[in-house]
Design a protein around this nucleic acid. Structure first.
Lengths: 247, 247
DNA sequence: GAAATAGTGTCTGTAAGACACTATCGG
DNA sequence: CCGATAGTGTCTTACAGACACTATTTC
């Protein structure tokens, strides 16, 4: 409960009033949070994983019970959503240099026992190498299937929405988020895409789909069994989604 | 400016505190607004239109200058976003029974001169008949091209995002929002889709694409010039986007 | 040479673009 | 019959799925 109700208009507020003649400050405002699903594919793993951070256990929870959640924070005064996202990742996981984008707002009134909290869900996909610098005490990588073990605040829904989005993007474009270190073989690329999709892909069709969107290096692998594989790079301008910090 | 700063923790607040030991109420919170792009295609018009509502003129604006904007409102205490959207459409335009869905959050700090306001943009597409009951004094239908005449609050961006979304949906599914009264001919359907797309579509290819997704009635038109046209209905479960009031 | 992996040829089915043909109405 | 509109046949191109073949390496 709040101590402030619908009091008389605040004389220090700006002069604008709405159709009821009440100023902005006369309405109770929600807390706004951001939560981020930071996805990756661990090296030589064939599943999507998501970054979780340790959170304060619920009061009354059995001692030793672990509580995990997506990294998130409350929006501070004057801060943009993306800045809040970056701050939460920096402070709660020690991660910098990511560029998440909005998924959608979760506004279920009962989603947060602490009060009236809207959460703007965000998504980014980053190479595991960038997650290596994270704080190992407070963070953890969980496969998607394992992560949906009763996360708080509808975080399971956020993860599901994030995975669906990422799968749709990987369906037609080679590694749009740059998970693979360059140069890479078509096999590397296919194993990554299969990990994202969660199902095997056609070898020959996949090659023909992707090769037109890659630039050959002319190099080949050496020291492997069988015929050496050609090495490729992504073409520079292959990330149409991810506008330059969309408003 | 606000009269409340980072005061001492409110003793009536819930016991939860964040990692800095501060309760929810210690942070300034943004105002949260919803704005809705309600699109339609007027009968026998070949363009998308958007519903605008009259707004208070800016102080200092020349007398007689008209100011229009998308219908919107501030989120009230305990209210969900979709409820706020429905309330704003009811109160500001006299429209009921729509089911908008989220587009995204606009959080540009300078977007609203009244203060710190986030806006959650929404979208719906409704038949013009449903807009006929609206308040004619305070509302107006504007073609998209005409509507982008300096709307406040980035409303032009909301409209652009809404149009892109709707065009993508109409590209593969016959009238997903049910604008056409049933039954209808393939010609009716194509003219509607051309209005949405803003460009002419192939007559034969369009028919073959859509006919597999329609149920024939067996009836035909009468009294028209040329060969009578078959009449169709939409198949019942043809609206996969628009989950039953998504959270 | 055998095993293994990379890369390609090719057949089939589906579907869009394009064009022209047939079908059925009002007058 | 003529004009007009609805509906269909069909040719071309492109591409996914499927399968098998060739190519080039290690052991």
């Amino acid at each position: 409960m709040q101590t402030r109700g619908a009091a008389a208009p605040d004389p220090t507020a700006t002069a604008y009033t709405d159709s009821s003649g009440r100023a902005l400050e006369d309405y109770k405002r929600p807390s706004v949070a951001v939560d981020t699903a930071l996805l990756t594919v661990a090296a030589h793993d064939d599943h999507l994983s998501v970054l979780l951070v340790r959170r304060m256990p619920e009061p009354g929870a059995p001692a030793g019970a672990e509580a995990w959640a997506l990294p998130g924070t409350f929006l501070h005064e004057g801060e943009t959503l993306i800045d809040a996202v970056r701050r939460s990742l920096r402070e709660k996981a020690g991660i910098e240099g990511v560029n998440p984008r909005q998924l959608r707002v979760f506004d279920d009134p009962g989603r947060d026992s602490r009060g009236w909290v809207l959460s703007v869900a965000h998504l980014d996909v980053v190479p595991t190498t960038r997650l290596a610098e994270r704080d190992p005490e407070r963070t953890r990588l969980a496969r998607l299937a394992d992560a949906v073990e009763r996360l708080p605040f509808e975080h399971d829904k956020i993860i599901a929405a994030a995975a669906a989005e990422v799968r749709a993007q990987y369906a037609r474009v080679p590694d749009p988020y740059g998970l693979l270190p360059e140069p890479f073989t078509i096999l590397d690329l296919r194993l990554l895409h299969e990990a994202v999709a969660g199902e095997p892909l056609q070898r020959d069709t996949f090659r023909r789909q992707m090769i037109s969107q890659l630039t050959p290096t002319g190099e080949v692998t050496t020291g492997t069994r069988g015929r050496p594989a050609e090495l490729f790079r992504r073409v520079p301008a292959a990330i149409p989604w991810l506008p330059p910090t969309a408003t």
